[in-house]
């Protein structure tokens, strides 16, 4: 008989799963876990991809499956949901702070970084509209002369 933990407990476990590319934030922080519910005795976890081709999505689905099984849930299904499309508005405030501490400037209101995550400078220039993962762009601070990643606003 499979354990049937409460969804709030499941959300707590999921919050312990780091994003595979940006390990300082959890998959819950990132806003990609959209739903945790039961369909009869089957636990359903719905996740949404950040970018449609992001290779991290399948790794995340695998990690979620693994963590839930380690917690005694055998009857589960991880589903993908694309509507409404993921937006950086779903990222938690905690995630934004952690990103900045980690050296990645969080998504701004207009599409551009608010400040340099290293020195807080505001004289910034874009190096490339893309970066090491689909969700980031490369910028540089003219005050401290350091390059940094910016989490694109989508």
């Amino acid at each position: 008989m499979s354990a049937r933990p409460a969804p709030t407990e499941v959300w707590g476990w999921l919050d312990g799963i780091p994003d595979p590319e940006i390990p300082v934030i959890s998959v819950v922080d990132l806003g990609i876990v959209r739903d945790v519910r039961y369909d009869a005795d089957t636990l359903i976890v719905a996740i949404t991809p950040t970018y449609s081709g992001c290779p991290a999505t399948s790794v995340i689905a695998f990690e979620i499956d693994k963590v839930l099984r380690e917690n005694g849930v055998d009857d589960l299904r991880v589903t993908q949901q694309i509507s409404p499309p993921w937006t950086t508005d779903w990222m938690s405030g905690r995630a934004r702070n952690r990103l900045r501490q980690y050296g990645i400037e969080p998504p701004g209101k207009a599409d551009g970084p608010a400040q340099c995550p290293r020195c807080g400078g505001h004289d910034l220039e874009r190096v490339s509209q893309f970066g090491s993962t689909p969700c980031k762009a490369q910028w540089r601070c003219r005050d401290c002369l350091e390059p940094f990643d910016y989490f694109k606003c989508i």
Partner: peptide, 20 residues
């Protein structure tokens, strides 16, 4: 290098869309 990354990222988006 920056353009190389940009082209590859655009390709990645398109392949993801293609799959859907």
């Amino acid at each position: 290098l920056e353009e190389d990354i940009a082209l590859a990222n655009t390709a990645l988006d398109l392949i993801g869309q293609c799959r859907m």
